[in-house]
C-alpha cells in the first residue's frame, strides 16, 4: 500500500517540477526560436519559424554600428583580467590574514569586513572622478582596475584557508620553505575549491556587469557585451530577430560555464552562504 502511494506522490512531484522547469525554460525557448525567424514573423502567434534563418547569427556580426565580435572579445578580456587580478590579490591577502601572524592583523581585517557591506553605488561617483583625473575614462584599463580588488574575495578565501590544518605550515617551515613557497606550493593548491568558486562568481559578475562600463566607456569599439547589447537595443532594437540572436550568443558563455562548473558552483554557494 505504502509503495504505491509513495510512487504516486513522487510522480506528482515530478510533474509539478517539470511544469515549473518548463516555465523557467520557455522564455529561453522563445529567444532561440525568435532568433531564427524572419523579421516579419516575429509578431506572429506561432513561435516556430517557417524557415530557419541561421544567417541571422552571421548578420549580427556584419551589421553596421554593431561591432558584436569586438564587444565579445572586450567582455571576455575585461572579465578575464578582473578575475585573475582578484583571485591573485585576494588569495595573497587571505594568506596574510589566515596563515601569517602579525600585530594589527585582525584590525585590518575588520576594516575589510566593514567595507563589504557598503553599497557600491556610494563609491561609483568619486571613482569616476578618480578615473577622469587618471585619464582612464574610456579605456579598458579603467574598467579593470576598480573591480580588481575585492574585500569579498579575500573574506571568502580566508574563511577557507582558516580550515587548512596548521601542521602543514610547520612541516613546510621545517623543510626550510619561505613564506612565499608556503603560499605558492602548499596553501594555494589546497584552497582550490574556494578559488574556483571565486573565479566563477567574479567572472560571471563581471561578464554581466553593466553600471561601471556604462559610466566609463564611450567609444563603441571599447564596449563590453552588456552595454553593447544596450546600444544595439536602443539603436536597432526593432530588428528583434537579430537582437535575439545577439542575446542568445551573449548567454552562451554563461551556459557553458554553468554546465561545466555546476557542481563546484553549488558547493561554493553553500560554502560561502551558510557560513557567511
Amino acid at each position: 500500500m505504502k509503495f504505491s502511494f509513495d510512487g504516486f506522490r513522487l510522480l506528482l512531484v515530478h510533474v509539478v517540477l517539470a511544469l515549473v522547469a518548463t516555465a523557467m525554460v520557455l522564455p529561453f525557448t522563445w529567444m532561440v526560436l525568435a532568433s531564427l525567424k524572419k523579421l516579419q514573423e516575429i509578431g506572429l502567434e506561432s513561435w516556430i519559424p517557417t524557415v530557419f534563418q541561421w544567417e541571422n547569427y552571421r548578420d549580427v556580426f556584419t551589421m553596421k554600428g554593431v561591432q558584436f565580435g569586438r564587444w565579445y572579445w572586450n567582455s571576455i578580456l575585461v572579465a578575464g583580467w578582473v578575475t585573475f587580478l582578484q583571485v591573485f590579490t585576494s588569495s595573497l591577502a587571505a594568506f596574510s590574514f589566515s596563515r601569517l601572524k602579525w600585530k594589527g592583523r585582525d584590525m585590518v581585517f575588520l576594516l575589510y569586513l566593514a567595507t563589504m557591506m557598503l553599497p557600491s553605488l556610494v563609491m561609483m561617483i568619486p571613482n569616476y572622478q578618480n578615473m577622469i583625473s587618471l585619464g582612464l575614462v574610456n579605456t579598458l584599463q579603467g574598467l579593470i582596475l576598480p573591480s580588481a580588488f575585492s574585500a569579498f574575495g579575500t573574506f571568502l578565501i580566508r574563511q577557507f584557508m582558516m580550515n587548512i590544518p596548521s601542521s602543514l605550515d610547520e612541516a613546510a617551515e621545517i623543510d626550510g620553505a619561505s613564506k612565499w613557497q608556503l603560499y605558492w606550493t602548499v596553501i594555494l593548491p589546497l584552497a582550490r575549491p574556494a578559488i574556483v568558486t571565486l573565479t566563477i562568481f567574479t567572472f560571471i559578475g563581471n561578464y554581466n556587469s553593466m553600471f561601471w562600463p556604462l559610466v566609463m566607456i564611450k567609444s563603441p569599439e571599447l564596449y563590453t557585451l552588456p552595454i553593447g547589447m544596450l546600444a544595439f537595443d536602443s539603436s536597432q532594437g526593432q530588428q528583434t530577430n537579430l537582437l535575439m540572436a545577439a542575446v542568445t550568443m551573449s548567454v552562451i558563455p554563461m551556459i557553458l560555464i554553468f554546465l561545466f562548473m555546476q557542481k563546484q558552483l553549488v558547493k561554493g554557494i553553500m560554502l560561502g552562504g551558510v557560513k557567511g
Binding site: 554600428g65 577622469i132 575614462v137 559610466v215 566607456i217 563603441p220
Partner: peptide
C-alpha cells in the same frame, strides 16, 4: 561613432 548609451554631456565634461 554611432552607438551611444551615455548622456553626451557627461562624456563632454569628462
Amino acid at each position: 561613432s554611432a552607438a551611444n548609451n551615455q548622456s553626451t554631456i557627461i562624456q563632454a565634461v569628462s
